[in-house]
């Protein structure tokens, strides 16, 4: 797999990095909370939860490091192999899930798809900020899928 480059403005990198510092620690908790873990066997459920937690925490670290080390303007994140790229994809999904559940769970999906709430002045600014970041992470994820597996988008 050739090296994958994700490019964004330095300002966007700064904003997303700040948000990641806040939301990444919660992302693992949200991932475990959402998962339907078979609970009839206590030992299995314990292993299952532990595997989800450690996996999500590792992805959060990967994402935070990638954003923190992206330098320049435009800022470039380099993903050197497929494993890194797939981990990055999953990590973005995890952060979007956490934002959706923790910051704007009250907003219906149909409104998020049109991102009309970005212009809704009646919403608190932190909520609008989180929705904007949610949309940005979505764009990054789609850009990565397009480079990694363009036929998935047909």
């Amino acid at each position: 797999m050739p090296e994958i480059r994700l490019t964004m403005t330095a300002e966007a990198r700064g904003v997303l990095s700040d948000l990641l510092r806040l939301i990444a620690p919660a992302a693992a908790r949200v991932a475990v909370g959402r998962a339907h873990v078979p609970d009839e066997d206590e030992e299995l459920a314990g292993h299952w939860t532990g595997a989800l937690e450690s996996h999500a925490a590792e992805e959060a670290r990967l994402l935070a490091t990638a954003f923190a080390t992206a330098k320049g303007d435009p800022a470039v994140i380099l993903l050197r192999n497929e494993a890194q790229a797939l981990g990055f994809l999953r990590a973005i999904s995890s952060v979007r899930m956490a934002l959706r559940e923790l910051v704007f769970a009250d907003i219906p999906d149909s409104r998020l798809e049109t991102t009309e709430d970005l212009d809704d002045e009646s919403l608190p600014s932190e909520k609008r900020h989180a929705i904007a970041c949610y949309a940005c992470f979505g764009l990054l994820q789609q850009s990565l899928v397009a480079q990694l597996s363009p036929e998935s988008l047909d």
């Binding site: 797939l86 994809l89 999904s93 979007r96 899930m97 959706r100 999906d109 998020l112 979505g138 994820q141 789609q142 899928v145 397009a146 990694l148 597996s149 036929e151 998935s152 988008l153 047909d154």
Partner: peptide, 25 residues
């Protein structure tokens, strides 16, 4: 689910279930 994009779900199925792109789609 309302959060994950269709293309992302296809990539997930190909990688986890080891099936073709067409089956995943």
């Amino acid at each position: 689910d309302p959060v994950n994009f269709m293309g992302y779900v296809v990539v997930a199925f190909v990688n986890v279930l080891r099936i073709s792109q067409d089956s995943a789609k």
